Amino acid sequence: MNNANHWLSKYAKEYKIKTGLEQLYPGSLNVRLISPQYYKLLSSEGKIIIIEKEEFGWQRQIIMKPCRVFNRLAYIWRTNNGERDDTDLLELITDCKLRDEYGVRDGDEIIVEVDECVKESID
């Protein structure tokens, strides 16, 4: 936790290659799910981006799932270690600081779209 800034800044070029976003905000928004209780990226439908640790000489595999939040392209972002845990937490990355851009505060409810219609609009 609280280390997204380090990794997104350090590997900005690599994330640009994988996401197509000109620049990612060097931080994330953590979203706790109401339902379903746990969400596994690898068992979800639609597009998934996997960055093998050997691809850029990293220590961990990164898994990203395109999504939309506030009608903005974003990615659910986690390591393969995080994918193995039963987690109700989504870590979202995008090209802006969502808290500032949309006035998000702790405890606010937001909608994260990850269904097939989102896949079509991202591909």
Rank of each mutant, 00 (worst) to 15 (best):
A12I: 07
L8I: 12
K13Q: 12
V118K: 12
F56H: 06
Y75H: 02
G82Q: 11
H6P: 00
I93M: 09
T94N: 06
L41Y: 03
Y15V: 06
R68E: 15
R78T: 07
K47P: 05
Q61G: 01
D108H: 08
N80P: 00
K47E: 09
K13V: 08
G82N: 10
S35V: 11
I110A: 04
R78N: 02
R32Y: 14
K65C: 08
S121N: 06
K16C: 05
S9W: 07
D100A: 13
N71E: 15
I34H: 11
D100Q: 13
S121T: 14
L29S: 07
G46Y: 06
N71K: 15
F70I: 07
D85G: 06
P66Y: 04
F56Q: 06
S28Q: 04
Y102I: 09
S28P: 09
I50T: 14
I93V: 15
S43C: 09
Y75K: 01
I93P: 00
T87P: 00
E55K: 13
L21N: 02
Q59S: 12
N30T: 06
L90D: 03
T94R: 11
E116S: 14
I34E: 14
T19G: 02
T94P: 07
S35Y: 14
D100M: 12
E52T: 07
Y39W: 14
